[in-house]
């Protein structure tokens, strides 16, 4: 009773100290856990033997030069049209050579018209060509980009699987095993079957284990809608590539 009264003034400070201890402890825990949050990120390096389709894509980029040509062709046609009426007027004034002039004028007119028509046709044709070229170029570019992504991810898949291959001893580096791999959209392997044996059963089995162990395999993000190109893959593995 009496001692409780005497310790009354300490109640608040004791409570504050208790909270302080807990705050410090949780801060310590939180900070130390945060340090662990930085994951030990293993650096992944994919070695490319040949550069992907980048050069194929750059070639069409230089193509625009022929498309620009039709545009300078326009001015001559525009000049030719106004040139006609004054000549016709001159021909009409000269009465002696009226007939001849008329005929020549008609001839010239006809010629001019034919020429004009021809030019227009050419123009239209060129424009159509340019348009189709541009479209082709776009398509080619899109296809090349898609191809690049496919190549990139196939290389990533192969690289990831390669990381999991445990090479059995005494494997010749020249052999090559081919696998048909069926994937699910999440990157899981539905089925991995040996398409072409390397001739070394241990290596075939090691690769198959590695394919299963490497799940989920890297796939392009779902919004690219490219999974159909990854549904069935044919992957080739050779001990020479493993770099071990």
């Amino acid at each position: 009773m009496s001692a409780a009264v005497s310790s009354e003034p300490y109640k608040l400070s004791a409570g504050a100290l208790a909270l302080l201890v807990h705050g410090a402890f949780f801060l310590l825990l939180y900070v130390s856990f945060s340090w662990q949050m930085k994951p030990p990120q293993g650096m992944v390096v994919d070695i490319w033997e040949s550069l992907p389709a980048e050069f194929d894509v750059q070639a069409p980029v230089t193509a625009p030069a022929p498309i620009e040509k039709p545009e300078p062709a326009k001015p001559p046609r525009v000049e030719a049209a106004p040139a006609l009426p004054p000549r016709a007027d001159i021909d009409l004034k000269d009465k002696k050579k009226k007939l001849k002039a008329e005929s020549t004028a008609e001839q010239r007119l006809a010629e001019k018209k034919a020429e004009q028509a021809e030019r227009r046709m050419e123009e239209v044709e060129r424009q159509a060509q340019a348009r189709s070229q541009a479209r082709q170029k776009e398509q080619a570019e899109a296809a090349a980009a898609a191809g690049r992504v496919v190549d990139e991810y196939i290389a990533k898949i192969a690289a990831k699987v390669r990381r999991f291959i445990v090479l059995p001893p005494g494997v010749s580096p020249q052999i090559r095993a081919e696998f048909n791999v069926t994937l699910l959209p999440g990157g899981e392997v539905l089925n991995a079957s040996l398409a072409k044996s390397s001739g070394n059963e241990a290596y075939d089995a090691a690769v198959e284990r590695a394919i299963l162990k490497a799940q989920p395999l890297p796939l392009p993000p779902a919004e690219k809608n490219m999974f159909n190109r990854f549904r069935d893959l044919r992957l080739k593995f050779s001990p020479a590539e493993s770099g071990q």
Binding site: S6, S7, Y10, K11, A14, G15, L17, A18, L19, H22
Partner: peptide
């Protein structure tokens, strides 16, 4: 456990002060 720990630390400090005072 958090509650118990808070209480026990409160008592620890309370007793520390009380015993020192006594």
């Amino acid at each position: 456990l958090l509650m118990v720990s808070l209480l026990s630390w409160w008592f620890i400090f309370l007793k520390m002060f009380a015993i020192r005072q006594a």
